[in-house]
Amino acid sequence: MSVPNPSSSASDIVGDHWSFRVLPRMFHPYLRLTRFDRPIGAWLLFWPGAWSLSLATAQEARPPDVWLLLLFGVGAVVMRGAGCVINDLWDRDLDGKVARTALRPLPSGQVTPRQALFFLGILLLLGLLILLQLTATAILLGVSSIALIVAYPLMKRVTYWPQAFLGLTFNWGALMGWAAVTDSLAWPPVVLYLGSLAWTLGYDTIYAHQDREDDVLVGIKSSALKLGDRTRPWVAGFYAVAVLLMAVAGGLTGLGWPFWLAVVGVALQAGWQVWTLDIDNPDNCLLRFKSNRYFGLILWLGIMLSPVVAA
């Protein structure tokens, strides 16, 4: 079977990612299926867990556990990939009707649904092996997230707020990180989870503006379509709630001045996104969406450095 050319400007596939040069050609469709060539999704999945487990260790005046960070990092890559496979299995007929997604492995025929299901099983097994390294509470939380992961791709068919369901799903690590350290839950991770949900509402609404015309064409919904020209004040509100709740979570854990400096940093970063946002320019939206990896890094550094400075 000939592989479609991913270089078309209409396609969202990255044609020159390093993984395509390193790994044999037979693996390329599976790399594209998991969006391995676009790691921003894995970063956005990783940060809430990293924040949470670092909060849990910071309250004990110690830096985060490197092994746990590694587990959450690998887990983010694996489970983000599994979520993409589930999404593409649900959406393979819709994706084939849109130029940006028509060359994805399932609608283009590079991977069959049966092959995708087998590959999904491998990813879920890897995710389970990682999950079993954690505490009992974290394991229970991880298993309970499967329903959200499976249901999320359907939400854009029934509501203009699929971004809210993405937030519920993507930020589950904010609960699991704390549980992986303490084998329990408390108010700081719950508040952090709610703040992370607001953060996702902001950045994914920005992302959704790239697809407005295609979404109307195929009959699916998004917060971008719902909000339209009111997007800027709404995103500003989402980000304001996110920063406020993240600050409360840090305050509940008694973090020091590096954290509060980081709160100022993420507020400025989010403000830059809103101030410079052009919802009619897909490249502008994509750049601001991707910049949230730096939002995550700034906040994490503030959490991580708080106990170091205190010592």
Results as ranks from 00 to 15, higher is better:
A10V: 08
D12G: 07
W18R: 02
L23F: 15
R25V: 14
F36N: 09
R38K: 12
G41D: 06
A42W: 05
G49C: 13
L55Y: 10
T57G: 10
A58C: 11
A61R: 11
L69M: 12
P107Y: 02
G109K: 12
Q110K: 12
V111H: 01
R114V: 09
G121F: 04
L125R: 05
I130K: 03
Q133G: 07
Q133F: 09
A138Y: 05
L140A: 14
L141R: 07
G142N: 09
I146S: 15
A147V: 15
V150S: 08
V158G: 06
W161G: 09
F170Y: 10
W178P: 10
D183F: 06
S184D: 14
S184L: 07
A186N: 08
P189Y: 04
G195R: 03
A198W: 11
D204A: 04
T205M: 04
V216F: 02
V216C: 04
G219C: 08
K221L: 15
S222T: 05
S222V: 06
G228Q: 01
T231Q: 09
V235Y: 02
A236D: 07
V248S: 10
W257D: 08
P258D: 00
V266T: 03
V274Q: 03
D278F: 05
N284C: 14
L286T: 07
S291E: 15
F295V: 14
L299M: 04
L305V: 02
A311L: 12
